[in-house]
């Protein structure tokens, strides 16, 4: 006999995997990945073309001694767009899935059938969370497979095993990130009797966590306020710039504090470092990257635990059954 949690998880998985919703979602995520890889490869191609043009110009002007660095190809760097999509769109889709998982039960009276079984509520919610976890992991495995195949095909270079490890690790971070949003919107949908209000608020909080806060680093950067850069237009030296910024430390601290409160920022820092998209971590060992980025991993996991915890906390009989048409 299997445990009730496992039974519920299996059913959730089977029900969703067969549902047109999941198939559409999976197809769409593959499409997004394909678009971002395609765009990355065309951008790289343009870069190479530019390099070749510059090189032939140099050769033509007989300045062969001058060296310009050739653009180097790192397959993992092609994934910047894909990761950004998972960050932004993945979170939206996880929110929609979380909302639907609860709205589906609330709208029908299958929840009454479930709640009259000899199963604890913890097992019930645990089953839902586990089932969704399996579903998200399947989706991520599918995407990873697609990425490996398409980048190998486009670049004609196979991934090295450290690269594969880094990729897999990044996708497991993605699981924690996405499940946070799933649980978060499921918890809100459990909490509010009015379903649309829950969805609207989930989207609003998505805006805050995924957009407003992470963007603050850029939009509130004084240097970004003028096209071409504030300091460049003032013709200051680097040292002068640092001295001036040092006078506005409170403002900078405020910007940083806001950034820290967003799960997205931690996810991004962690994955960009792991994949080497953040230049200083390119080609560094995993140990080195983890040594630097463990606080981001810890905070990502803390957000994940808080999300799952909220789903458990808000799951009372009354809330599961309460519904508005």
């Amino acid at each position: 006999m299997t445990s009730p949690t496992l039974t519920i998880a299996k059913k959730e998985y089977r029900d969703s995997a067969r549902n047109a919703l999941f198939i559409t979602l999976a197809g769409f995520m593959v499409l997004l990945t394909a678009v971002s890889i395609l765009v990355a490869s065309f951008s790289f191609q343009a870069e190479v073309a530019q390099y070749n043009a510059a090189l032939s110009q140099l050769t033509a002007t007989q300045r062969a001694g001058a060296v310009i660095p050739a653009p180097s190809y790192y397959p993992l760097l092609m994934l910047r767009g894909t990761i950004e999509y998972l960050e932004i769109i993945g979170a939206v889709l996880a929110i929609v899935l979380g909302y639907l998982a609860i709205a589906k039960e609330k709208g029908s009276n299958t929840s009454r059938l479930l709640l009259t079984r000899p199963v604890s509520r913890a097992a019930l919610i645990g089953g839902k969370v586990l089932g969704t976890s399996l579903l998200i992991l399947t989706l991520l495995a599918l995407l990873e497979g697609f990425i490996i195949l398409s980048i190998t095909a486009i670049g004609h270079v196979a991934f090295s095993s450290p690269e594969l490890l880094k990729l897999t690790l990044s996708f497991s971070y993605t699981y924690f990130y996405l499940l946070f949003f799933f649980c978060f919107s499921a918890a809100l949908t459990l909490f509010f009797k009015d379903l649309p209000r829950a969805l609207l608020l989930s989207f609003a909080l998505w805006l805050v966590f995924v957009l407003i806060i992470p963007q603050i680093g850029d939009t509130m950067d004084p240097d970004n306020q003028v096209p071409g850069g504030f300091f460049a237009s003032m013709h200051t030296t680097q040292d002068q710039q640092h001295a001036i910024i040092a006078q506005f430390q409170n403002y900078e601290n405020f910007r940083n504090a806001l950034e820290v409160s967003s799960i997205e920022k931690h996810y991004e820092r962690l994955v960009f470092a792991t994949l080497g998209i953040k230049g200083m971590y390119n080609d560094k060992s995993l140990g080195y990257i983890m040594g630097d980025k463990w606080p981001d991993l810890a905070l990502l996991l803390a957000f994940y635990i808080a999300g799952v915890g909220a789903a458990f906390l808000f799951a009372s009989n009354k809330r599961i059954m309460a519904s508005s048409p």
Binding site: K11, R14, D15, R18, N19, S108, N109, T110, R112, L113
Partner: peptide, 11 residues
């Protein structure tokens, strides 16, 4: 058995 029972339609 609740009134107007519903199930998982895709199963």
């Amino acid at each position: 058995l609740p009134e107007n029972v519903t199930f998982y339609n895709d199963l």
